[in-house]
């Protein structure tokens, strides 16, 4: 265990395998997740604006496809937030291990 330098040696931490692994793990989730929710959300105004006949089709009783699609955005947000929290536990572990290996006690 290296003693912590003050200030920390940012460049060597950034180049370390552990930090790169942490960054890669975050990117693996965050980039596709962001693309997905942006596309899924922007599909709503596109569908409603340019395919109104399709969106007016009833799905359940009086409820039409447009309302179901809108409601699904709420569900998508809740699910995506839950997935983020699940993944972030793994990042937190990687972060704590990285900081410990550098001799810093985790800030948490």
């Amino acid at each position: 265990m290296a003693a912590p330098t003050n200030p920390p040696d940012w460049a060597s931490i950034e180049q370390s395998a552990d930090f790169k692994a942490l960054l890669a793990a975050k990117r693996r989730f965050i980039i596709p997740a962001t693309l997905f929710f942006l596309v899924y959300y922007m599909a709503l105004p596109v569908m409603v604006g340019y395919f109104p006949a399709l969106m007016k089709k009833p799905v359940w009783g009086a409820v039409n496809a447009a309302y179901v699609f809108a409601l699904s955005q709420f569900l998508m947000t809740f699910v995506m937030a839950a997935m983020y929290v699940r993944r972030s536990r793994q990042w937190d572990r990687m972060e704590s291990e990285l900081l410990a290996s550098l001799g810093f006690t985790s800030a948490h």
Binding site: Y41, M42, V48, G49, Y50, M55, Y67
Partner: peptide, 24 residues
Amino acid sequence: LEPGMHFGTAVNPWGPLDFISLAL
């Protein structure tokens, strides 16, 4: 429950594009 009363083309020809712009 039907879309289009504010952003629909019947109300404003630019409506759908305005809606996309607002959403962004």
